Simulated scan of single mutants.
Amino acid sequence: MSKAQKTVTVVQIGSPIRRVSTQRATLIGLGLNKMNKRSTLPDNSATRGMIEAVKHLVRVVDGE
């Protein structure tokens, strides 16, 4: 029996224009590249670290 893996959905709310290249790369790593785009990712420490690095550009959506 496999357990259902927890996921987290993030929405890009800020533009990467005039941001450092590492923040742009982090957004691409999260599967985001345009405003209001959503991405559902596994909820693990690597994903949470990436979200923390660009927390001013993304919003975590609960209940999805």
Results as ranks from 00 to 15, higher is better:
V10N: 07
S15I: 02
G31S: 09
T7P: 02
N44E: 05
H56F: 11
V11L: 13
N33M: 10
R24F: 03
T9R: 11
R48H: 09
V58D: 02
V11D: 02
Q12P: 04
R19I: 01
L30F: 09
S21Q: 13
P16M: 10
G63Q: 05
K34D: 04
I17Y: 09
M35T: 05
K34E: 11
S39M: 05
Q23S: 08
A46H: 15
N33G: 10
K34A: 07
S15V: 00
P42D: 09
G49S: 14
G31N: 08
A46N: 15
V11Y: 01
E52M: 10
T26D: 13
M50W: 04
K37Y: 04
R24I: 10
A53G: 05
S45V: 04
A46Y: 14
S2W: 00
K6E: 13
Q23I: 10
N36M: 11
T22H: 10
V58G: 02
L57W: 03
M35C: 04
I13T: 12
V61R: 15
G31T: 08
K6G: 01
T40G: 00
A53C: 07
V54W: 07
T9C: 12
Q5M: 13
S21E: 13
R48G: 00
Q23M: 10
K37S: 08
K6L: 08
T47F: 00
Q23D: 12
R24K: 13
V60Y: 07
S15F: 09
A53T: 07
K55P: 03
R38K: 15
L32K: 01
S15H: 05
K3W: 04
M35Q: 11
G31M: 09
T9E: 11
A53V: 06
R38F: 07
K34R: 14
T9N: 05
K6V: 02
T26P: 11
R18V: 04
V11N: 06
V10F: 00
K37I: 02
H56Y: 12
G49A: 12
K3V: 11
T7N: 12
P42E: 14
S45K: 13
T47Q: 05
L27Q: 02
E64L: 08
A25L: 10
V8C: 08
T7R: 12
R19K: 15
R38T: 07
A4H: 06
S2H: 10
G14L: 03
I13H: 08
S45W: 00
P16K: 06
L27T: 00
L41W: 04
L41V: 02
I51S: 04
D62K: 15
G29V: 00
M1Y: 14
K37P: 02
G14V: 08
T47C: 05
Q5C: 10
V58F: 00
I51G: 05
H56R: 14
V8G: 01
I13E: 06
P16N: 09
G49E: 08
L57E: 06
L30G: 08
V54K: 02
Q23N: 09
A46I: 15
N33Q: 13
G31V: 04
L30N: 04
G49N: 12
R19G: 00
